[in-house]
Simulated scan of single mutants.
Amino acid sequence: MAVIAILAVLGTAVPALAAPPGDLNQVIERIRLALLVLGGALVGLFITIGFFRYSAADGDPGETERAKKAIRCAAVGFVGAAIAQLIVKLLQSVVS
């Protein structure tokens, strides 16, 4: 499911990336888009792994705690990616 979502996002992003960039803002926007796709894919992957570990823990407290930690780390990564997007937008406004 995650692979299909990644391919769908890349399929819509690739035509926009085919033309050469015209200015620095377009370069920054393309880098932002690529990092957003990569970050979203990684967050989705780690949340999925965490949920699989949680469901396979079978009541083992150590495994349950590791699964919860993986899910928490993925959530922190998601928040970090969102903050990074805000920083890039701020830098774009300063540059332009």
Rank of each mutant, 00 (worst) to 15 (best):
R66V: 06
G59A: 06
V88N: 08
I83A: 15
I87M: 10
V95P: 09
L10C: 14
R66G: 00
A13N: 13
L7D: 13
A16P: 00
N25M: 10
L35K: 04
V76K: 04
E65N: 05
V76L: 11
T12M: 07
E63S: 09
A41R: 01
S55F: 15
L33D: 12
A8I: 12
I71L: 03
P15Q: 11
G44L: 12
A16G: 14
N25Q: 14
A41C: 09
A81H: 08
F51G: 00
A81D: 08
I49F: 04
R32Q: 14
G39K: 04
V3R: 01
I31A: 15
A75C: 01
V14L: 15
G59Q: 02
V43K: 02
K68H: 04
G11R: 12
L36A: 15
C73Q: 09
I4P: 07
L90Y: 13
L90R: 11
V27L: 12
I49H: 04
R72G: 00
V3L: 13
V88R: 10
V37M: 12
G59F: 00
A75K: 08
Q85H: 14
S93M: 12
G59W: 04
V94G: 00
D23N: 15
T64A: 01
A2G: 14
G62V: 07
G80L: 15
R30T: 06
D58M: 09
V14D: 02
L91N: 01
F51P: 12
T64N: 02
A19F: 07
G59S: 05
A81Q: 06
I83V: 15
S93V: 14
F78A: 12
G62S: 08
L7P: 06
V95E: 12
Y54Q: 07
V95I: 15
A84H: 06
A57E: 00
V95M: 11
I31R: 08
E29W: 06
T12P: 09
A81N: 12
E65R: 04
A67Q: 07
G50T: 00
I71C: 04
E29I: 02
L33Q: 14
A67H: 10
Q26W: 02
A18S: 11
G40L: 03
I6S: 07
S55P: 07
A56D: 14
V43G: 01
P21M: 05
V76E: 03
I47G: 08
A57P: 00
A70Q: 02
A41V: 02
V27Q: 07
L35V: 13
A5W: 03
V14S: 09
R66L: 08
G77F: 08
I31N: 05
C73N: 06
L38C: 10
G77D: 10
A16Y: 10
T64C: 03
A74C: 11
L10F: 11
P15G: 09
G39E: 09
L17F: 15
K69Y: 10
A5G: 10
E63Y: 05
L38P: 01
L24S: 11
S93F: 13
F78V: 02
V43M: 05
E63L: 10
K68I: 06
G22S: 11
L91E: 11
R72K: 11
